[in-house]
Design a protein around this nucleic acid. Sequence first.
DNA 1: CTGTTAGCGCATTCAA
DNA 2: TTGAATGCGCTAACAG
Lengths: 364, 364
Amino acid sequence: MSRVVTIRTVAERAGCSIATVSRVINGSARTSAEVEARVRAAVEELGFRPSEIGRSLKTLRTRTLGVVIPSLTNPVFAASVAGMEAEARRRHHTLLLTATDYDAAREPEVVETLVAQSVAGLVLTVADADDNPTLDRLDAEGIPYVLVYNEPRRAERAAVSVDNAGATFTLAQAMIAQGHRRLVYLAGRFATSDRARTRYLGYLAAMEAAGLAPEPPLELDYLADPAGHGAAIAGVFGPPGRPTAALCSNDLLALSVMGALRVLGLRVPEDVSVAGFDGIALAGAAFPALATVDTPTRRMGERAVEKIFELLDGAAAPTLERLPFELRPGGTLAAAPDASPGAPARRQDDARPSQSASPETPSE
Amino acid sequence: MSRVVTIRTVAERAGCSIATVSRVINGSARTSAEVEARVRAAVEELGFRPSEIGRSLKTLRTRTLGVVIPSLTNPVFAASVAGMEAEARRRHHTLLLTATDYDAAREPEVVETLVAQSVAGLVLTVADADDNPTLDRLDAEGIPYVLVYNEPRRAERAAVSVDNAGATFTLAQAMIAQGHRRLVYLAGRFATSDRARTRYLGYLAAMEAAGLAPEPPLELDYLADPAGHGAAIAGVFGPPGRPTAALCSNDLLALSVMGALRVLGLRVPEDVSVAGFDGIALAGAAFPALATVDTPTRRMGERAVEKIFELLDGAAAPTLERLPFELRPGGTLAAAPDASPGAPARRQDDARPSQSASPETPSE
DNA sequence: CTGTTAGCGCATTCAA
DNA sequence: TTGAATGCGCTAACAG
């Protein structure tokens, strides 16, 4: 139905062979101006569009890039996919998009699907970039891929990321500088994100560098189980002697944690400071604005696609590449409640107070 | 390189013909248990995965859906694409994703690209669903498609949308009920969004129903020209007798307008009330929370993909389908500054139209 | 400069 | 139940 006009139709109309039509279309060889004009006319009249399928079958290569991300609902990935799309389009390629919904078990099948489509390469963010049979398989089959946000230990694994541990180290340091001594690290399930794990290392390092006692990470299933999430937060921040700062593995989690803290009657940042990671727009729009690590989300996607083409062209060997990040200050990060007033406690008061935080603020 | 093992390899390993392998894989015909076992073993050992390309060339149909959206950076579309992806995956299909960056001129080429890939169908949000040569071409070629958020006048054009005009009418009514009499409608460029145009009709209707004088829409190029955007806002809200309410064609614009108003020293909602459209998370996170129309963004995408399959199966004729929306109250919508604290001003006694703006000028 | 021809990987018809 | 053969739309190697 949709594909009634083929290269053969055009050849008949132009009164030449299909090879010549192909040559004109692809400019793969010289043709006489006369024939070329006839062919172009025929193409125009018939509205002919060469089938990528036929072309691919011959070439065994498509103009398609496979993309695997945890979820489009997370603005981090939406932005990086937007970058990929723009860069791919610039190179006359299209994206085949799939999501795993943060389920590592789904990685093999989506990659299978993509590979079955003969994608030219893959761009993916996986749960674990080191222990990953799916990537092993891609390596074995020589299918080029670039990871995004993952930081594989193996140097031969191409990746575009940020210094996850380093950035978190810096962020934790900033919190400590504000007088916080009991910082907790909150994350989604480690099994679904090696970034969360790597960032925890940054937290550990900062705590140790400051001579503070690090605490085990709190893994929250905030996506699948919002209720249990609130309960877990209550368990940590409810009791006296609670932490004064929450370092979250990503912005979405941080926002969710802020909500849970408010439900507990705790004020941010007066009672508890909060910080995130990623630098999504949502973080800046929140009130108070979320302190976070600003990562070049869109650029990451662009760069990943550039890199895939470098691999395809054999122009470069796969490497781990870290893009620059920046600490983004925000109202959610303030001096610790028990910090001495001499400390650089600063909080802009230009914004009006949100209705009423619970009157009885347990300040201890 | 990547495609070393074909159906032929499997056939040799299993000691049978490629036809038999095909039969086993697709269950298209009965085979003896013995041969089937051998084939499955060979498939397993070789890690064989049938090439979608080969299959498609034969079938002339792929398991791929083409998607065209203005931009992934707008959370509305990110969410709806997330819905499409989930629904497509459920049906063993993949998405070929493209974006136009709000440039209608790019629609023909991206659709061409998608069609050249022999997608099974298309899901798209276009600039103008009525006057659109690209859609005409799809109609002519009988390629099935479903529009999202567009509301084509032609009933034969399949679409999943909301009642854009109706929702805006309701929202404008809510503003009027708060005592606002000078409402302006702000939009991105109409040329890039028929939704913005349709929503304006809702504004018009509400103004007329209330006996108020509607104003011409203010088209802002807030994406391409943030600076000019601020200046335009200043032009409208700077002078005395300024409007007390801004009805924006979408949430992203509304957020941007809020920022521009603050730069002018105007408070939201004390000086100016603001409302948006879409119901993105960003709107709820903003402070004050943005009053808006909550639309089922993700569900729209899911439903669109369901609908594409209904069309493909011939199970249904293309229709325009409107999903329910909901008014989402927010702190940005409050009583008009000059409204009497008593009852919502309905002004049916006052015959004089636009004369009366707020005589009390700003109090910065 | 142009035409003929041989596959690319697969599903499918036709025989056996 | 199975195998051989055909062709989907196209590119590329080879003749002419």
